[in-house]
Amino acid sequence: MAATVNLPSVLARLAADQKSVQAAGSTLGEVVSDLTRRYPELGPRLRDEKGQPYPYVIFYVNDEDVRFQGGFQAPIRDGDEVVVVPAIAGG
């Protein structure tokens, strides 16, 4: 399965200045692992030391907040769009 991962500017710098990256995996966690393998500096920005998502870095798969979809266990299908958003906004 291949998904398109859209990164904010602050993370794109760690992925060869690409704001949109293809990554493979059948779950979001696998997609993040694929990204981390190819762009090692992204890893510690996307998941904590236990391999879990940070509370302040939010992932959306096809506009759905993955915190309601099983987190890193959220399934990924071919052509899915993943958006990464730092959770600093609100109010």
Binding site: N6, P8, S9, I58, Y60, D63, D65, V83, V85, P86, I88, A89, G90
Partner: peptide, 13 residues
């Protein structure tokens, strides 16, 4: 709002 908020983060970027 949470969806609006996500959109706005992308807009700012």
């Amino acid at each position: 709002y949470d969806q609006v908020n996500r959109l706005c983060s992308q807009v700012a970027d």
